[in-house]
Computed example of a mutant assay.
Amino acid sequence: MDRFKSIFAVGFGGAAGAILRYCVILTAGHSFFPLGTLLINIVGSFLLGMINGYFASKKKSFVFLALGSGFCGGFTTMSTFSQEVVNLLQTSLPLAGMYLGATLLFGLAAGFLGLGLFKKRRGGTL
């Protein structure tokens, strides 16, 4: 793949993902629990699982880069998640643990679920 086109594909997808993340965060609002970021990371894990499952038996393309590295990378957010865990640790250890556990558990489950949608296409293995 042409390097410039690959960079453009990732940048375009990343911009779209970041804009959508911002819109979701605005819609979710702020509360004592970072529900918006939790939902974003779970949905992003599901989408990335689907994208990887779909492209597992295909030649990687600009679409794969735009959707996977770009969109999902711009949509999901490790840095915000980390900062929210730190903030919750300072105010409520149980909420911090719940947020950390929910993000990990539901994020992994969503990723496997997304990947599993294309199980037959890849020969039945995860």
Rank of each mutant, 00 (worst) to 15 (best):
M78A: 11
I40Q: 04
F112D: 07
L48Q: 11
V63H: 09
F55E: 03
L105H: 04
T103V: 07
N87K: 13
G36A: 13
A109M: 01
L108Q: 00
V43S: 12
I19K: 11
G97L: 13
L105I: 14
F46V: 09
V10W: 09
F71W: 01
G44H: 01
S61A: 11
G107F: 04
A18L: 05
S92N: 08
L48D: 06
G111T: 01
I7K: 02
Q90R: 14
G73F: 04
I40A: 00
S69Y: 04
S31P: 05
L93K: 08
T37L: 02
T80S: 14
G70V: 00
C23L: 15
I42K: 01
L108T: 03
L95M: 14
C72M: 06
I42L: 09
L65Q: 14
I51W: 00
G17Q: 12
G14L: 08
S79H: 06
L89F: 10
G114Y: 01
V63S: 15
T27Q: 13
L117K: 08
A28E: 01
K5I: 13
G124E: 12
K119A: 13
I51T: 03
G44D: 08
Y54E: 12
L104D: 00
F46Y: 08
I7L: 14
A28H: 02
L113I: 03
L88S: 05
I7P: 00
K119Q: 12
I40N: 07
V63C: 14
L108A: 01
G74H: 09
F118L: 11
L65A: 12
S69G: 09
K120G: 14
P94S: 10
Q90C: 01
F46S: 03
I25E: 09
G74V: 03
T125P: 08
S61W: 05
G101L: 07
T80V: 05
A102T: 09
K119D: 04
S82T: 13
M78C: 04
L47D: 02
S45D: 07
S45M: 06
G13H: 02
G116Q: 10
L47C: 14
L93I: 14
L105S: 11
C72H: 03
L117G: 13
S82G: 15
F55A: 10
G14K: 12
F12W: 10
Y54I: 10
S45Q: 06
L67W: 00
